[in-house]
């Protein structure tokens, strides 16, 4: 198993390398020029100053050399300087990434906690009222764009109840300025800010999860070995959970591997709508501001996440299914 993981990790390196080459080329193809992006709005400069900056940013080099320089820096852990924040990219991303993890992990755990029992029950009582109600819910959740749902929540929930549920952001501006009474005060404040974005993310991913759990369970329930389990005279609970659900987990594990990166990417839009200080929000504003080293680092992070998600799915697959050989 250990050897298998190491081997798979080594396989990821060339893939990631190709992805960064494509990303780099795309960024360089973007319209606009980097000097004005570097200077921001303050771009009244002489030709000489401009040439100095171009030299400083390494823009005079061949694009291949530029990439090689970026790669060399990155491998030593230096992702460059952010034009906008005037601080190292690692610090910019490092200070925001945990906010993204926070929102995603809460939403993922909530979605799974709801989807698994709901999906199992829907499958066991197929076409019942419970199943039909959740099918309608899933359909709505699937079809509705996340930003639209987010705007609906802001308008119908946050506006009328603004004293308790904040519109956006992560901290109360006044409290942040004058300081919190205690750590609990801060946690409570962040929790209230989490309500809306976590609700949107949970509902959106719940729709897919329920369908997957339900279909996967339906697939397993009609298998012959479930009948065998019933013939053994086992309790229905044992049949459903020990025999059926364990087998239904196999495709779910794969789904999870794909779903984790998908959640992070979905968060890009949501973080922008809710002004959540996460990596998605940073990526969005950095693209708008042509803050290319931040964009490069954030995109590389997303690519690595997707690849690791796949690897995680394969490893878990081998763990839960005795038929899969890892050699």
């Amino acid at each position: 198993m250990f050897r298998y993981i190491v081997k798979r990790l080594l396989h990821l390196i060339p893939v990631l390398l190709v992805i960064t080459i494509v990303l780099f080329a795309l960024l360089k193809l973007m319209p606009g020029d980097e000097v004005s992006a570097y200077l921001g709005t303050n771009s009244n400069i002489t030709q000489e100053q401009r040439e100095n900056i171009e030299e400083k940013l390494g823009l005079n080099d061949n694009i291949v050399v530029q990439y090689a320089k970026w790669l060399g820096r990155t491998l030593t852990g230096d992702f460059g300087m952010s034009f906008k924040f005037r601080q190292p990219v690692t610090e910019v991303i490092g200070s925001y990434i945990w906010n993204t993890f926070l929102i995603n992990i809460i939403a993922l755990v909530l979605a799974l906690l709801i989807a698994i029992p709901v999906g199992i029950r829907s499958a066991v009582k197929k076409y019942g009222a419970f199943d039909n109600a959740w099918t309608v819910f899933s359909l709505i959740g699937f079809s509705m764009p996340s930003f639209f749902f987010a705007l609906c929540l802001i308008f119908f929930v946050a506006v009328p109840f603004s004293s308790f549920i904040p519109l956006n952001g992560m901290h109360d501006a006044i409290k942040l300025a004058i300081g919190y009474d205690s750590i609990w005060d801060e946690i409570g404040d962040v929790a209230r800010h989490l309500i809306l974005p976590v609700t949107v993310m949970t509902v959106i991913s719940l729709a897919g999860f329920i369908k997957y759990v339900r279909n996967s369970m339906l697939d397993v329930i009609r298998q012959d070995y479930i009948r065998t389990a019933r013939a053994k005279g086992l309790k229905e609970k044992v049949v459903i959970y020990r025999h059926a659900f364990r087998n239904a987990l196999i495709p779910l594990v794969t789904l999870l591997g794909f779903q984790i990166p998908a959640l992070f990417m979905g968060a890009i839009i949501l973080e922008t709508v809710f002004l959540w200080p996460g990596i998605g929000n940073i990526l969005y504003t950095s693209v708008m501001d042509r803050d290319i080293w931040v964009v490069m680092a954030a995109n590389t992070f997303y690519a690595a996440l997707a690849l690791l998600g796949n690897l995680l799915a394969d490893v878990c697959y081998a763990l839960v299914d005795p038929r899969v050989k890892t050699s």
Binding site: Q223, Y225, T228, K232, K235, H243, P322
Partner: peptide, 27 residues
Amino acid sequence: QIIFQDPYSSLNPRMNVFAAISEAMIE
């Protein structure tokens, strides 16, 4: 008891032989 037709699908793929046979005895 019953012996099923298809020996390929009537055994739970995630249970080893010992578990498949002993489960009902213990139950």
